[in-house]
């Protein structure tokens, strides 16, 4: 029965071609370091899913942000689990993405013909770091507030336009409800849009070019 459903769908959608291209492609004999990309993808999807659920209760205003998170943690059923995964998953994703980059760098896997994969990977790293930075403000507690004061101030060291960039990031001179609102917008819409579309390009290139083999001693 299942085989007939698959055959019916495949005839109309060409699903098996996609499946075989994505999952049955030839790969060289590699090691466990080559699983870090898949781990990054898994964490990105996990952050997306738990983040979507968090927006059901989180309110991005100075009056409500902290209290809504307290509510999620203490009163909503399994709220501690959803936010716990999002909170710890964020740190883990930074670590895993960095190790993934390190593996590619050390093995020289960024070289021809995979330069574009590397460049999209750089965008992905920046989007991941940006998500971490913007998400950190959202609880609106002392720690997140002052971390964002410091973090945005660092942008002020850019020559000539530094002060302007700080004002753009903060939506003004100081951290206000407008800062919280734009960090929230960046965190749930702009950065995820960049992140997931770039993941699409990144994965396409990995499948298109195949993954590199472990370099031999004489190379």
């Amino acid at each position: 029965m299942a085989a007939r459903v698959v055959a019916w769908l495949d005839e109309r959608m060409g699903l098996l071609t996609i499946w075989n291209t994505v999952f049955d492609r030839k790969v060289p004999r590699v090691n466990w370091w080559f699983t870090l990309g898949s781990a990054s993808l898994f964490l990105a999807v996990m952050q997306g899913a738990t983040g979507i659920f968090l927006t059901v209760y989180y309110v991005p205003t100075p009056e409500d942000a902290y209290n809504s998170i307290e509510y999620i943690m203490n009163d909503v059923a399994f709220g501690w689990l959803v936010r716990g995964i999002h909170h710890w998953g964020a740190s883990l994703m930074i670590v895993i993405v960095f190790l993934h980059m390190l593996r590619v760098f050390i093995y020289g896997a960024y070289k021809y013909p995979r330069e574009v994969t590397w460049i999209t990977g750089v965008v992905l790293l920046l989007a991941t770091l940006g998500s971490g930075f913007t998400g950190y403000l959202l609880p609106w507690n002392q720690q997140s507030y002052w971390a964002t004061v410091v973090g945005t101030s660092i942008v002020g060291t850019v020559p000539v336009v530094g002060d302007f960039l700080v004002r753009v990031l903060r939506a003004g001179d100081s951290l206000t409800f407008l800062t919280l609102s734009r960090f929230f917008g960046a965190h749930i819409w702009i950065l995820p849009a960049i992140l997931f579309s770039m993941i699409g390009v990144h994965l396409y290139l990995v499948i298109r070019n195949g993954i590199s083999y472990v370099p031999r001693r004489d190379e």
Partner: peptide, 10 residues
């Protein structure tokens, strides 16, 4: 399964 409880909680 916990997500179902999460959504219906209020």
């Amino acid at each position: 399964l916990p997500l179902v409880g999460y959504l219906v909680s209020p």
